[in-house]
């Protein structure tokens, strides 16, 4: 497959997975959150998660950070379209960041080739 086609199809699949995530991702907590709920006593190991169960993250002295697009959304007023935009933006951000870093790596190799031995 040609490189251009590979990129287009690859990005297309990533966007499709992202859009599927917006509409079909499970609302249940993930493995780490479920474990936290089990430890808190809000969930049994193999039982369903109660609808009002919430992971306690408000621990004094621990760092806290507000991201610009929390939970892959543009804000509640944007609804599902906002989530789709956020996910697609993330897919392209990841592509561009790694593409750029990879190009930089090849340029550094040409400029200053690494020793033959090593990894």
């Amino acid at each position: 497959m040609e490189t251009k086609s590979f990129i287009i199809i690859g990005i297309g699949i990533a966007v499709l997975i992202g859009l599927l995530a917006v509409f079909f991702a499970s609302g249940d907590p993930d493995g780490l959150e479920s474990t936290a709920l089990v430890i808190q006593g809000d969930k049994t190991l193999t039982g369903d998660t109660p609808p009002n169960a919430e992971v306690k993250e408000d621990i004094p002295g621990r760092f806290s950070y507000e991201s610009p697009l929390p939970d892959y959304t543009l804000g509640t007023e944007w609804g599902k379209p906002g989530e789709a935009i956020a996910i697609i933006a993330g897919v392209f951000l990841a592509f561009i960041a790694v593409f750029g870093a990879s190009i930089l790596a090849t340029k550094l190799k040409k400029k200053n080739p690494p020793a033959r031995e090593g990894l």
Binding site: A14, A21, S26, D28, A94, F95, V98
Partner: peptide, 18 residues
């Protein structure tokens, strides 16, 4: 490079899909 970058985009998407 295209493979590496496409893998990154795909991983971002699959990690968002619970």
């Amino acid at each position: 490079i295209p493979l590496v970058a496409v893998l990154a985009a795909g991983i971002f998407a699959i990690q968002a899909f619970n």
